[in-house]
Design a protein around this nucleic acid. Structure first.
Lengths: 137, 137
DNA sequence: CACAAACTTTACCTTTACGTAAACTTCATA
DNA sequence: TATGAAGTTTACGTAAAGGTAAAGTTTGTG
């Protein structure tokens, strides 16, 4: 279930992906359960496409940003949705704006915390210096 | 259980804080259960100090950034820890650096997603224009 | 006094995102 | 052929972060 050539591979086994993204096969199947990916089958074996792989990457990035699987699925659905339906497009615009706002807020939070962490780091280092000069090991 | 003056208040009731931060009293008590805050008591009633309030704010910001309560507690513990223990200071430095790295990664993620969301937004708008020009309502 | 508002504890319930185990099939290879 | 690796389904378990309900105290006020 492995191809020797490693130019742009176009299909993947479940273990290929589990290794590449360092997640369990259980997780991958779970994402399918939740409707986030839809691999083809050869017999009962799952065959993942490039698209499936991209989606996995997006799922994991979403998770790092605190998106729930349900949220991510919603985004996928809208992305796949009928581009001629103005209603759907508007729904999508709303969701996109909502996410944008949340992420901006998150960026601001991160900046603040990073500054605080830097400050904490300096204080730690200064305290360590101080301890050293007083020969406290 | 309310003070009329609202200059820098120095103690708060549980409902003061639940209103201010828009969380339930259940959550506040849960954070205490998990060792994140330690309000004083008057009888059996909880009395929150300025420090408790600051901590609550930090807890919530941590949550927005995907910190678990356990992680946040760990940070609090180290922050309170013995400043003359070089071992503790080094542990803290390690943790701080770990968090910094994670947050940098998160910032990068956010930037990418924001760009993608902007692109999606443009595509939506274009598609809507297109629909309009074709009189598809 | 009585009664409502706000507080408390205890305890069980819920959702999300998997972990873990059992039991079975497929397939390549010794 | 048999054995082991990788795949599958089904099903129960778990941890985190609370929700919700019950039952009881405290307190201020008409």
């Amino acid at each position: 279930m492995m191809s020797a050539i490693h130019s742009p591979q176009s299909t993947y086994s479940i273990s290929d992906l589990s290794k590449e993204f360092d997640i369990t096969t259980r997780s991958i199947r779970f994402y399918e359960d939740q409707g986030l990916i839809k691999p083809k089958r050869r017999g009962q074996t799952r065959i993942y496409s490039l698209k499936d792989r991209v989606r996995l990457k997006l799922i994991l990035r979403g998770k790092r940003l605190g998106f729930s699987l349900a949220e991510t699925r919603r985004l996928f659905e809208l992305y796949d949705a009928d581009k001629s339906s103005s209603t759907q497009l508007n729904t999508m615009l709303d969701l996109v704006n909502e996410k944008k706002t949340a992420l901006q807020q998150q960026m601001d939070d991160i900046k603040v915390v990073l500054m605080e962490l830097n400050s904490a780091e300096q204080q730690c280092k200064a305290a360590l210096e101080d301890n050293n000069s007083k020969k406290v090991k």
